[in-house]
Amino acid sequence: MTALELRGVSKVYADGASEVHALRNVDLVVQPGELVAVMGPSGSGKSTLLTIAGSLEHPTTGEVLVGGNLLTSMSRNEQARLRRRSIGYVFQDFNLLPGLTAVENVALPLELDGVHAKPAQAAGLQALEELGLADRASRFPDELSGGERQRVAVARAVVGDRHLLLADEPSGALDSINAEAVMRLVHTACRRGVAGVVVTHDAQLASWADRVVFLRDGRVVDQTSPPAGPESLLRSQPRA
């Protein structure tokens, strides 16, 4: 079963009298455990693709399947449950709730899903521990550095039993070492079987992906081939 499938997805926004085609007939399949990066310039449709994949928005035409479930055949409640249980989101600006501590932020999706506070907090703490943030659990977002805040956001996105991780420019304004740390976390989550989609214009972030899809004017125009093993790089170095 695929983790995410977009079939012929198009999205048209009305802009006054004219129409804006944000996505045009996009096909995309992401397998469990696969990390896919979607690269493209501003306005290429990257963020629209992500919000449609996460059922935050509906396509004008085409179908979206998450974990084999056709989103259009699900009720609004079922979709909301799918978003809470199966899909994790990481946004550029972290989107942490300022009135909640780090662990409360991470546990929130579980609590919203009906998990009792205690086990939810325990799961939240475990997710923070895995990201090396156990000692920051009771801090509020404004007491954390940018890198720590983004790690909390990643913890929130992977807490519980998530199958699909969606990230929009997840390194935000972080420096390159912190950005790398965030991508390592996303990559590690994918190795454990989570499917990941990262949209970015940053080639360094995209290079963590198993596959990079290039989007331009709402269309998929190209994608990378499966990369050769890194040892090929060393072999190809001239021994001059």
Partner: peptide, 8 residues
């Protein structure tokens, strides 16, 4: 990008 994937 493919080269960068290998280096990464």
């Amino acid at each position: 990008v493919e080269l960068m994937q290998q280096w990464t």
